[in-house]
């Protein structure tokens, strides 16, 4: 995996303090939003938990880290754009959609067609960690995101999910 290059502002201390002037703060939020999406995409991060340390939100080289308020504000701005979703009412966990659910659904459909699985059956675990998806963008997809994407395909009549006896038996039948 190529080295992720942090943008200039990540090394500039004031970007770790919420700016009181409106225009400056908007610029600051914009920069952080872009960085969060880019970072999560690079490292395939799907959920950010505000109660845990997240490496992006602190820079030990300049001894600065974002306050809880700032983190919640930046993630909230992504939520407002539809690029993230709070997973709980108290805003502790945030699902980062660096690719939209619809795009995920299309990606899965493409994969299904390319691999001749039009009438095939796969378990959710196979899709996430199996040999077929290994090396594709789908590998390692978050379970919540996967289920949501498959539901989109279900609505289009291109897939049908079914439950097994255990969670890792949950599967999907494609009918693309």
């Amino acid at each position: 995996m190529e080295q992720f290059k942090m943008p200039y502002f990540y090394n500039y201390p004031p970007y770790f303090t919420l700016q009181p002037v409106k225009d400056t703060r908007e610029k600051q939020i914009q920069l952080w939003k872009e960085l969060i999406l880019k970072y999560c995409k690079q490292y395939k991060v799907f959920v950010i938990n505000l109660d845990e340390e997240f490496p992006l939100f602190g820079n030990s080289a300049i001894e600065r880290k974002l306050s809880h308020e700032a983190r919640e504000l930046f993630l909230g701005a992504l939520v407002a754009e539809g690029k993230a979703e709070w997973l709980d009412k108290a805003h502790h966990k945030c699902l980062i959609l660096w690719r939209s659910i619809t795009d995920w659904a299309n990606l899965i459909l493409e994969f299904v067609k390319e691999n001749g699985l039009e009438d095939g059956v796969m378990t959710l675990e196979e899709i996430r960690t199996g040999d077929e998806t290994h090396g594709t963008d789908i590998a390692g997809i978050d379970r919540t995101v996967l289920v949501r994407a498959l539901k989109v395909l279900e609505q289009k009549g291109k897939a049908a999910m079914f439950k097994g006896t255990a969670t890792d038996d949950e599967g999907v039948k494609f009918s693309a």
């Binding site: 500039y12 201390p13 004031p14 009181p20």
Partner: peptide
């Protein structure tokens, strides 16, 4: 600061507000 020429930084361990000039 209002002119957008200064950014504040409250993150230093000594607690003193720093005014940065990009």
């Amino acid at each position: 600061m209002k002119e957008g020429l200064v950014m504040v930084d409250d993150g230093h361990p000594d607690g003193k507000r720093r005014y940065w000039f990009p």
